[in-house]
């Protein structure tokens, strides 16, 4: 349901950031929790990678890798295991579309549209 709503709002031209919590406050607040390391709106001020505008496939591949690997003592390995598959998938779309007209968001919308 959440995926449908996110896709839908993307299709009607409302990006996850401007659609505010109405669509999915769960993912919005979770994505905002990532800001401590990855920056406000996923735009990092430091060495930690920015998530804003990351191609969704790349986001999903990395998170799948972190989630499935044995404990290596890394922060993302420890966080990825605590999130659901649905949350990871929605976060991919959320961060892709922080840059609303960027390539990553367009790719995400096209994929979601095709589903």
């Amino acid at each position: 349901m959440r995926i449908i709503l996110t896709v839908l709002l993307s299709l009607v031209g409302v990006t996850p950031l401007t659609m505010a919590g109405q669509a999915d406050s769960h993912i919005r607040s979770l994505a905002a929790s990532c800001a401590a390391c990855h920056g406000y709106e996923g735009k990092s001020q430091g060495e930690t990678p920015s998530l804003a505008g990351m191609p969704p496939d790349q986001f999903l591949d990395r998170m799948r890798h972190y989630r499935d690997m044995d404990d290596d003592g890394s922060v993302m390995n420890q966080h990825a295991k605590g999130l659901t598959r649905e949350e990871i998938s929605l976060l991919a779309g959320y961060f892709a579309c922080v840059v609303p007209d960027g390539t990553a968001c367009n790719t995400y919308r096209q994929k979601a549209d095709g589903q």
């Binding site: 800001a35 401590a36 390391c37 920056g39 406000y40 990092s44 001020q45 430091g46 930690t48």
Partner: peptide, 16 residues
Amino acid sequence: REARSWASNIWHDALG
């Protein structure tokens, strides 16, 4: 280095 990045980001997130 991660800790330095954490501090920059959380300060900016709260107060930037």
